[in-house]
């Protein structure tokens, strides 16, 4: 009994010490083509000088979960180290014919569709393994998409802190207010990952959010 108490006591001390040292797993989730990789690239470029993945106008460009270890983000003299996890966009349907509209060859479109379905399954599996999640939404699209609500519901059930990013605010059609009214319980930051607009506010929110874990 006494041995057990001692063992639990020391385990508690050591896990507490190392919990503060490990990198924060920062996940990027959202529907396809919302700008998850663009935002991950922007952060990586700002703090490591390298990009994380390729971006494209064709949906489902990211079809595997991608990682970038030891990304040290500094903001107003504070520093935090993150393991960035960029995930494939989650959708409820995949049709290879949709890729043909982007002049992708039929054979390549079929391969892309197959890889995209596997990527979605992988994204969903990774939901269990995040510390903090940024949900990247396209501010020009309807935010009431069920995929967005399902992702948020899963993160809430797992008690993972969430930040909602309304991306593409450089576009005329963008509507941050609509995103805010769709998710009134969460912080929403409007940015343009492509041009770096309002990115400082994003970093501030990430620091605030990471304190919650």
């Amino acid at each position: 009994m006494a041995i057990k108490i001692f063992r639990n006591f020391f385990r508690g001390i050591f896990s507490g010490l190392f919990r503060g040292k490990r990198d924060v797993k920062l996940g990027f989730y959202g529907p396809p083509n919302s700008g998850k990789t663009s935002l991950a690239n922007r952060i990586c470029k700002d703090f490591t000088g390298e990009e994380m993945g390729t971006v494209s106008k064709v949906p489902h460009e990211t079809r595997n979960v991608q990682f970038k270890e030891k990304v040290e983000i500094s903001y107003k003299g504070k520093k935090m180290t993150f393991k960035m996890v960029d995930t494939p966009g989650i959708a409820t349907k995949i049709d290879y014919e949709d890729f043909l509209k982007y002049k992708v060859k039929k054979k390549d479109a079929k391969i892309r569709a197959k890889e995209a379905t596997q990527g979605i399954v992988e994204s969903i599996k990774w939901l269990d393994d995040m510390d903090v999640v940024v949900i990247v939404l396209d501010a020009t699209e309807n935010p009431y998409n069920q995929v967005n609500i399902t992702i948020i519901g899963n993160l809430v059930a797992r008690k993972i802190p969430i930040l909602i990013v309304a991306n593409k605010i450089d576009l005329k059609k963008s509507n941050i207010k609509q995103v805010e009214s769709a998710f009134p319980e969460y912080d929403v930051v409007g940015i343009s990952a492509k041009y770096g607009k309002n990115i400082e506010e994003f970093y501030e929110s990430i620091f605030k959010l990471s304190k919650k874990i």
Partner: peptide, 18 residues
Amino acid sequence: LKAEEEARLIGDTMAMIG
């Protein structure tokens, strides 16, 4: 459905494509 079940439904249907 529960949020986890909705996610699982999406995952399972994705696995069925093809």
